[in-house]
Write a protein that binds this DNA or RNA. Structure first.
Lengths: 133, 133
DNA sequence: TGGTTAGATAACTACTTGGGAATATAGAGG
DNA sequence: CCTCTATATTCCCAAGTAGTTATCTAACCA
């Protein structure tokens, strides 16, 4: 039997870098902050007991993962959230939904689930995106 | 201002280890295999150009992340998928759905989205869970 | 008992990562 | 020009990771 070396599908070969970027609490908090709108590096660094270069490094990781893009405003390099990789990651995870949701097969069950999803408490925690912009 | 050291919420403090576990293609492939049912370490190792100890290590990572649990069948230690952390990760990501889904606010849009989700092509790739059990 | 099979553990290497300190660059505004 | 501010880069270190080979343990089987 042929041993697999490249068993990644083209559709998902950036999941590595996406999930790796999401595996750090500082970076998830940065994303949560950016969900409330653009922010400069200084603004992003402010809540953390961490030096600015450390934040810059986290931003580079997020940038490589395509999760943030950056503009230019004089000396500032404002960051903003790019959700596309999050969508891809979510889609990958959705493939496993049936393993925790017994009603997955029933469409009305799905609809109920989605309704409650739409209603669910979005109260901001440091790890969750903030209120609607 | 108080610098945050523990900015993780209790609800999500295992996201670190979950996302880290998902950041490796071998481990995602193992999960996809386990989505089709229990498997022994040997069975899991077979498709990979990798030694058995390497697979054992990946399994330990997945086990620490709570993504697999293991039973005992004579010498075999069958693994099976534990989806709970996947659910938590998905829920965290769903908090960002509005950033890629313009129709997020409209419930009927959500329902449409979910319908197509239920119907969508689940053709097995190495990175996706297999067919319905 | 001994042998075989499944799996875990250990020891090692090469590479990456998250952090800090110090320094460098870039642009704004005297 | 010089200086201040925002950000990036470089160098260093400790720790973690992904893989290897070799060895150990545990359970079955003859």
């Amino acid at each position: 039997m042929i041993k697999l070396s490249g068993y990644e599908t083209a559709a998902h070969d950036h999941l590595d870098v996406t999930f790796a970027a999401l595996a750090d609490p500082t970076r998830r908090a940065i994303l949560a902050r950016l969900a409330r709108g653009e922010a400069s590096v200084m603004e992003l660094a402010e809540p953390f007991a961490m030096t600015q270069p450390a934040i810059s490094k986290h931003l580079k990781v997020l940038e490589r993962a395509g999760l943030v893009s950056r503009g230019r405003d004089a000396q500032r390099r404002p960051c903003h959230l790019e959700a596309r990789p999050l969508r891809d990651a979510t889609e990958w995870l959705e493939g496993y939904r049936r393993f925790w949701s017994e009603s997955f097969e029933r469409l009305d069950g799905l609809i109920d689930e989605l309704k409650s999803m739409g209603e669910r408490d979005m109260t901001a925690s440091d790890e969750q995106p903030g209120g609607r912009p």
